[in-house]
Design a protein around this nucleic acid. Structure first.
Lengths: 110, 110
DNA sequence: GCTCTCCTCTAGATAATCAAGATGACCATA
DNA sequence: TATGGTCATCTTGATTATCTAGAGGAGAGC
């Protein structure tokens, strides 16, 4: 069996997607690629997780999709962060920081 | 509605339980209390998550249970970490560290 | 007797993820 | 023209960790 990429820490995918869109709109495939690259292969996001996440985030009004040609003259659906999406990113980042600190405290308790 | 304790980051409960047992055996209720205390109330582990986790960990041979009286002369099931459990704790800690670094890289990418 | 706290445990629902594809279009090469 | 690679979207079905919302028992204090 191949060395498998780690499963995503459940609950973080939405935050990672929003974060990935913070600077500029991207299409789904590009988002997955970016997460894989920056995580240095630790997270390999699978389409069966990615596309349901897009629908979730769209339904909440945090991202918006638009069909556009890519640089390679192919069609792709570009997602951009809405204003409410930026707010949500801040909220989720704060929550993550809090939980991270809590886990760290437990892991470092002597 | 009361300010609710944050949901556990999914996948970390097993690690937190093993960690809590690292120094000495504890009973289930005590484990939940300790996690809540050290996390300063961020995680409020609920029995419906806790006891299934115990069965999982026991089935894997990572913890072992034994009925014993508490300091208050009540019966309680004390769980202790097995040798294999200590190995598993090391493995999960390493994996968590790796994933944490990956998430941090994504969250800090400019 | 009564209630509070300690402590174990269960049933059912929810929801995020995974595995394993299908589909189609552009592009390079034979 | 045929073929195969890679870009790109999307689906179906299963798994599984968690949550909500309890039940139940037993000692302690009043």
């Amino acid at each position: 069996m191949n060395p498998r990429a780690a499963d995503l820490v459940q609950g973080t995918l939405d935050m990672l997607i929003l974060k990935t869109l913070q600077l500029e709109p991207r299409h789904g495939y590009g988002i997955a690629q970016r997460i894989e690259q920056i995580s240095r292969g630790v997270f390999r996001v699978n389409p069966g997780s990615l596309f349901p996440a897009f629908r979730r985030l769209e339904r909440q009004g945090w991202i918006k999709a638009e069909w556009r040609p890519t640089e390679n003259h192919r069609r792709a659906k570009y997602y951009r962060l809405t204003e409410r999406g930026r707010g949500q990113l801040r909220t989720e980042t704060a929550e993550w920081t809090k939980q991270l600190a809590a886990i760290t405290r437990i892991m470092e308790a002597s």
